[in-house]
């Protein structure tokens, strides 16, 4: 592990936590789109920025850490 090569952990837990960034980006985009085409905008939908990470954290806590490789 000290040889400098990056080892990617492939356990379920780490795979779920990798989703956080992309899913937040998707949420942001979806909200801006909704503001254009529906009656709901950022002012209505901002709590999604709490709910979506909450769901991911919840999923993470149920995901197994079996085979986890720490760097």
């Amino acid at each position: 592990m000290a040889d400098g090569t990056k080892i990617k952990c492939n356990c379920a837990h780490c795979r779920v936590s990798c989703l956080m960034g992309p899913v937040m980006l998707i949420t942001l985009g979806a909200i801006f789109l909704a503001a254009q085409y529906t009656r709901y905008g950022m002012g209505d939908l901002w709590p999604l920025f709490l709910i979506v990470p909450g769901i991911i954290l919840l999923a993470q806590s149920f995901a197994s850490r079996e085979g986890h490789i720490s760097r």
Binding site: H13, W46, P47, L48, F49, L50, I51, P53, G54, I55, I56, L57, L58, A59, Q60, S61, F62, S64, R65, H68, S70
Partner: peptide
């Protein structure tokens, strides 16, 4: 390695978001 993260944080965030909604 033995530590799974607690479900409590996720639940709190969801609860907070739902309350605001």
């Amino acid at each position: 390695p033995h530590d799974r993260s607690s479900a409590f944080r996720g639940l709190l965030l969801i609860l907070l978001g739902l309350l605001f909604m």
